[in-house]
Nucleic acid binder design. Sequence first.
DNA 1: TACATTCGTCGAAGCGGTTCGACAGTGCCG
DNA 2: CGGCACTGTCGAACCGCTTCGACGAATGTA
Lengths: 334, 334
Amino acid sequence: MATIEDVARAAGVSRSTVSYALSGKRSISRETQDRIRSAIAELGFTVNAGARALATAQTMSIGLLSQFHQDEFAPAMLQYIRSVSDVSRELGYDVLFVTDADGASAVRRITSSNMVDGVVLLDVTHADPRLALLRAARQPGALVGLPGDVEGLDIFDLDFAESARVVIDHLHGLGHREVVLISPPEHVFERGGAYGWRFRDAAVERAGQYGIRIHTYYGESQQPAIGISTNAILDARPEATALIVHNDATIAAMPLVLMARGVKVPEDLSVISLYSTDFGRIFSLPYTAVESSPDVLGRLAVEQLVRRIGDPGQAGPTVVRLIAPELVNRGSTA
Amino acid sequence: MATIEDVARAAGVSRSTVSYALSGKRSISRETQDRIRSAIAELGFTVNAGARALATAQTMSIGLLSQFHQDEFAPAMLQYIRSVSDVSRELGYDVLFVTDADGASAVRRITSSNMVDGVVLLDVTHADPRLALLRAARQPGALVGLPGDVEGLDIFDLDFAESARVVIDHLHGLGHREVVLISPPEHVFERGGAYGWRFRDAAVERAGQYGIRIHTYYGESQQPAIGISTNAILDARPEATALIVHNDATIAAMPLVLMARGVKVPEDLSVISLYSTDFGRIFSLPYTAVESSPDVLGRLAVEQLVRRIGDPGQAGPTVVRLIAPELVNRGSTA
DNA sequence: TACATTCGTCGAAGCGGTTCGACAGTGCCG
DNA sequence: CGGCACTGTCGAACCGCTTCGACGAATGTA
């Protein structure tokens, strides 16, 4: 492979001159620039990323940590991954994608070996074991998901509590008095997936204020358990006039379950959920829902991360940004 | 950050000794090893990946190129990504995940700058513009998907032609004489997604041999077009007794479409498709289908790639491996 | 005309590792 | 008891690039 030395020789200049021509950090005469440019073209030269990283202490890549818990519903995750990947590239960074089962040691590995300039964590739990390592790292970190301790990291998430309130307000406005909420699977709560209880607790509280009776259940994450469980819930609560589904796997299966039961939406039952527009399209979901905006969250996280990378220590105090929910009315409530 | 120099000083030895202790490439006395080990622990030393890459010309990471065409159905892609990521880590490699719209220049970027030791390409088309760049690269490449020109690269894919034959044989064995095939969307064919015609052409040929009448259609990739198109097809071919769906987006929406039409499977219509078990679970699909095995393909590709990285030039001639289809009978045909 | 600037370029040091050749010390063999 | 083969360790070169300080030449200023 051609090195900068080869280019320098071919152009009859020194290595440093080539480097400056490339970076533009010092002025170089037109003619010299041209000679260098054609030497580069001729030799097919590209800077060696490792060498540059070593010299500049910048790798121009960011780590993306994603965990695929078994029994977890993966399709939604892809939207975050895509968003982070696209935005990173847009800002000039490559993405080191890590799906290690042991997220904590993965964080240590990529940060302490200096493979990345920053880290994005997806699917953050309440007491996420990766956080301690990330705080200890030289590199800044941005999270998608709200942990219990927000110290020292930039955090982006949907405002699940407010989302729940928006949903309950909406149902209250329509006159519902008896509703069912299907939450994420129990193991998500056990693992510390705070979005589960943030949504549920706020929903219960708000419903209480309105005098709405709300029955909460854990949903399942896999077929055929989903169908069985959902049917059991609906059987147990025939008096409910609205169903709130905060569970990707369950809402994905809902059209089928309801059609099989002969339930008409919204005539027989109002259904309202929380998912992204893309997700809804993939699963042909016709329900009114709070938009979960994975693309926005991914973008915010990466943009903030890059800001911090560029301006280490500065860029202000760390941020906790819970984005406001937006209800997309698809007419599945009445 | 602690460097190897710091460790050497702390342990009272030279840098090279530390390096040899780490790599085990030369023998080091027990005591020296111990001193080094504790110095490393004390200083929290980790080798700098960039420096190592520079010195060894090995980055221990592989590039994963994935494209998200708009109008493409993403969920299936995730399974490949996951598989490649997991297997890579298992073999000691990190994954540089690239979703550049311009795949060809992405290939050039990561290979010529030496960011990766090898490249896996997903979603390979018949005349994939990325291949030329990959062949020209120093690094080996492995593909998932069968291109027109298989020269110089290792290739792994499902045997779509054989899959089609298995499907037709199956239907023929059940006595079907009139079948409909829904292929991938037309733009997949236009883009050169060879799996589309590989399956279709083989199906048509085999059906011809049996005297089965087969009507082929392009499917859609997005709701609500899917529902409309599928209904139109079914309306147009009331005499068909079996439906073959080779289209992820369409099969995902099929339960809903069929239930809405009041079609009973397999009594009124036999349905047979091609998707992975995971995919089927995600979309609650009850259909007999050829298993598409994304996990197997991802694994094969990475394993072969790593073999070539370890043994450059050698590891035998390049491989074209079309894995044998396996029909998973879920009782949706009669 | 003399001096201070600016411009364009170069050489060398440094980033943090790996690896090759050398070499002192030991143990073993004939 | 001399010679040889190991062992364990070190120093130096090298991987490819960036960047700092220096410097001659050209330009501007008083």
